[in-house]
Amino acid sequence: MSVPGDNPAIPPSDPAPNPCLDGDAAWSEADRLAHVWARGFLRNKDLAADTAQDALLLLKKNAHNIHANWKAWLHRVVSRLASRKRRAECAEKSRHDSAPDTLATLPAKLSWAHERMVERENWEECSRFLDQLDLKFGLHTRTIVDLRGRGMRWEAIVKATGLKDSTCRRRFRIAKEWIKKRPSLQPAKGGHHE
């Protein structure tokens, strides 16, 4: 198995084993890390287990060629495999959506298509506003909103931005308030029409 862009830095003919990967302890650590990272990327237990297995297989095959930090190598491989799996999953889903319709599923599919379109427009609109955050409220505001939106602790956000905890919290609050007040994201007047 190969991952796009995985070009081993050391030629495969180099027979010297990686001393850091000797022993059961190192392999069990690799196994644990692969699973933990895959779960972090995919948030799907089964998909993560598949990804971790693939990554470990690659690590086993390339163990003799990894002379640098094997954890960094493994992290890169897990990250790439995870993104490839997620893309494949999305493609599979869209293939399923565009499959020949039966009479029973057609009405529902039509409405889903509408919804997806609106959803797409909304995300683009929202992304556009998120892109303006750094310019409006200072560098790293987008990072703060993104990371906090993903549920990260303030401590991790402070580390990622280098700003004070109070600054991060204040910017997040202001940015959220600003996005909330954008006209294109305001609720339509007059209520909903059935």
């Binding site: 960094a72 890169r76 999305c90 993903r150």
Partner: peptide, 30 residues
């Protein structure tokens, strides 16, 4: 959270990887 996380994930899947990205090579990952 779900909205921002989804946008972030889309970026991960759709944006081009640059030489500074953390999954570009082992040095960046390290």
């Amino acid at each position: 959270a779900a909205s921002v996380a989804e946008i972030l994930e889309r970026h991960w899947l759709e944006d081009e990887r640059t030489s500074n990205c953390f999954d570009f090579n082992e040095t960046r990952a390290e």
